[in-house]
């Protein structure tokens, strides 16, 4: 225990090790639901006009007639060998789809986290600083409204009404250029990489609406957390000490008080990752963003079992890792924390 680099490495290593049983559990649960609950997926896989023989051949081909445990072991061993399977309908390898879709989602989530941070945290500070007054009430109404709006409703309104009205692109398909042509598969970074500045602008424009839709509706979480922890920090003596040094209100609020409030806000933002990822399923479908959320939707509704399981694994790992990241950030922000 301590705050050395080696302590941090041990801490992160331990946490990553704990990831393994979680991933195994996630696989078991998803496998169970897909393979037990769905009656005869081959009716879908073989196509709507398939003959009984074709369906039978499909069942044999995917081994659906074997005991469930057999099927599970076979799936697990292929998974461990690095083969994540392919979409039973069409045969596109799952890993290929995911590896190009995941960066697009990451870009979307990072962009909305950015918006949440840049708008949400100052709003929380403003609300806490004027607690009980009109600014506070206004901010609370704002963030509760965001909270109370279902993601899909906000996204539909932004995509169908607001986007066309203010002339922002409402679809993630980059019609003029190949969408992702660089090493990172993130539109903005790739365009930067290629030093194609018009493309950077274009990519940013495409990000605005989906990222806002994802962010605005979760903005409340950052704002509420900042507000609450600022209310806890503001009456503390060290804030008075800062005031008594003759520092301006701005420095007192944003350097001394906010710095300590951020510790809890960061934790919440890490937990929010799960909410944001859930949001991508809806947002990416509505905005046709070529990310993992849209892929998840297609896989789930299309009985693409390997795809569904793979997507769920990716989501679970992403959630666990973002929780880990927020823990590490917490430790960095609060010098009293020891890694253990």
């Amino acid at each position: 225990m301590g705050r050395n680099k080696s302590d941090l490495i041990v801490f992160v290593g331990k946490r990553l090790l704990q990831l393994l049983p979680v991933v195994l559990g996630v696989i078991v649960i998803t496998f169970f639901f897909t393979h037990v609950a769905v009656q005869n997926p081959c009716a879908v896989w073989a196509g709507a006009h398939a003959t009984a023989d074709q369906v039978q051949a499909c069942i044999l081909r995917f081994g659906l007639n074997r005991p469930l445990t057999d099927q599970f072991w076979r799936y697990l061993t292929t998974l461990l060998s690095g083969d994540w399977g392919a979409n039973p309908r069409g045969g596109v390898p799952v890993l290929l789809s995911i590896s190009s879709a995941f960066p697009a989602t990451l870009e979307l989530v990072l962009a909305s986290l950015f918006i949440m941070t840049v708008i949400g945290i100052p709003l929380g500070v403003v609300a806490a600083n004027g607690a009980g007054r009109w600014a506070d009430h206004l901010v609370r109404v704002f963030y509760l409204s965001g909270w109370a709006t279902p993601t899909y409703l906000g996204a539909v309104v932004l995509a169908i009404a607001v986007g066309p009205a203010i002339g922002l692109p409402t679809k993630g398909d980059f019609t003029t250029k190949p969408p992702f042509y660089g090493p990172t598969h993130m539109s903005v970074l790739d365009a930067l990489w290629a030093l194609d500045f018009p493309a950077v602008g274009d990519a940013l424009l495409h990000l605005v609406l989906p990222a806002s839709a994802l962010a605005l509706l979760n903005l409340g979480i950052a704002t509420r957390m900042t507000r609450t922890s600022m209310l806890e920090v503001l009456p503390l003596d060290f804030v008075k000490t800062a005031r008594m040094k003759g520092l301006s209100d701005f420095v007192v609020l944003y350097k001394h008080a906010l710095r300590n409030s951020l510790i809890s806000t960061v934790t919440i933002l890490g937990i929010t990752a799960g909410v944001l990822l859930s949001g991508t399923v809806v947002i990416e479908t509505i905005f046709q963003w070529p990310g993992i959320g849209a892929y998840a939707y297609d896989a789930i509704t299309g009985y693409n079992f390997p795809g569904t399981i793979a997507v769920v694994i990716v989501f679970a790992v992403a959630v666990v890792i973002s929780n880990l990241l927020s823990d590490v950030l917490y430790g960095i922000l609060d010098p009293r924390v020891e890694w253990r």
Partner: peptide, 24 residues
């Protein structure tokens, strides 16, 4: 706690979608 950890690792909407889709 272990089982809870597994469930918490899912974004709940995705798991719910997967279950709902499986059940029809």
């Amino acid at each position: 706690l272990r089982v809870t950890d597994v469930f918490l690792a899912f974004p709940s909407l995705v798991l719910a979608l997967a279950i709902a889709a499986s059940l029809g």
